[in-house]
Amino acid sequence: MNVLEGMHWGEARLLEKGIDNARFDADLLLARVLHVSRDRLYLDCDLNLSEQEEANYRESILRRADHEPLQYILKRQEFMGLAFYVDQRVLIPRADSELLIEKWLELVMAEEEQGQDRLIKAVDLCTGSGALAISMAHYYPKAQVFGTDLSQDALDVARENAVRLGVSVQWRHGDFVKPIQGERWDYIVTNPPYVTVQEYGQCALEIFREPSMAFLGGQDGLDFYRSLSEETRSLLNPQGKLLMEIGWNQADAVCELFRMKGFETQVFPDLAGRDRVIIAR
């Protein structure tokens, strides 16, 4: 099998199983096996694969054909311009969540421009791979950043990513807000589980390979927000802010939960125009 034959074979196997972007996925898997860029495949399309390379490629294609997420096979996902290691222990970071970091950076930079010279203390709840916390620490190293998760396995991945990317984050293990109780925070940032039970049952097969606890937010998807609305006042400094990712149809319900507790809220859409981030203060 040469490179061109491999690309065609992989694409055909993935199309048979209904995999979206079959050619793209097949190309990336072949490029990974050969340790080259995707572009290089087209320059070396007549290059023959070794027996081991062909065996590794076929195994990768069969895994993807079985609806294992591409990112888990590649062990990599890009987020905020950084390359994160991911595997079955953590949720795969999505581009939609970058809006959380962009809004957080706007807030901390505005403080700096106003001459507020203080140590900013920020925490990422439900950190998973550490994508949010590590991005915060990378792009604003003046902040003291923490990350928490109920899953010790997820924290192991987050720690590994922090070391790989050379940032300093303090990690805490525990359920919900327990690891940060008794302290005051300038910023709480979170991408919590917010998928309803009904929605989860209708997800693409790839979703079921990711940790279910990172998706399921109860019957109506609002369990985490209810609890957070009860706890946030005791956790934030007087000028502190909470930034949350939400499902596209949850803005009104989540805002109402926080307004009932005396918070002001702002809703921000993602690039597709869907409600995605709420800032509560």
Score class of each variant (00 low, 15 high):
13 R>P: 04
14 L>P: 01
15 L>S: 13
20 D>H: 12
22 A>E: 10
22 A>T: 07
23 R>E: 12
25 D>C: 14
26 A>W: 02
33 V>S: 02
36 V>N: 06
37 S>V: 07
42 Y>G: 10
44 D>Y: 11
48 N>L: 13
50 S>C: 08
55 A>V: 06
66 D>T: 10
73 I>K: 04
76 R>F: 09
80 M>T: 08
82 L>I: 11
84 F>I: 09
90 V>F: 10
97 S>D: 07
97 S>W: 01
102 E>T: 07
102 E>V: 07
104 W>N: 03
105 L>S: 00
105 L>G: 02
105 L>W: 07
108 V>I: 15
111 E>K: 13
112 E>C: 03
113 E>I: 06
121 K>W: 08
124 D>R: 03
125 L>T: 04
128 G>E: 07
130 G>A: 06
134 I>M: 08
135 S>Q: 10
137 A>Q: 06
142 K>T: 10
142 K>Q: 14
143 A>E: 10
146 F>Q: 01
148 T>F: 01
155 L>D: 04
158 A>V: 08
159 R>F: 12
159 R>Y: 12
162 A>C: 10
172 R>Y: 11
174 G>M: 11
177 V>S: 10
182 G>F: 09
187 Y>P: 00
193 P>D: 11
194 Y>K: 00
197 V>I: 13
202 Q>Y: 08
203 C>W: 09
204 A>S: 13
208 F>P: 05
209 R>D: 08
209 R>Y: 13
213 M>N: 10
218 G>M: 08
220 D>C: 06
221 G>I: 06
222 L>H: 01
222 L>K: 03
228 L>F: 12
232 T>H: 05
238 P>T: 11
239 Q>K: 14
244 M>I: 14
247 G>F: 03
252 D>C: 06
253 A>E: 14
254 V>T: 03
261 K>S: 08
268 F>E: 09
269 P>L: 11
273 G>Q: 06
274 R>W: 13
278 I>M: 00
278 I>P: 00
278 I>W: 00
279 I>C: 09
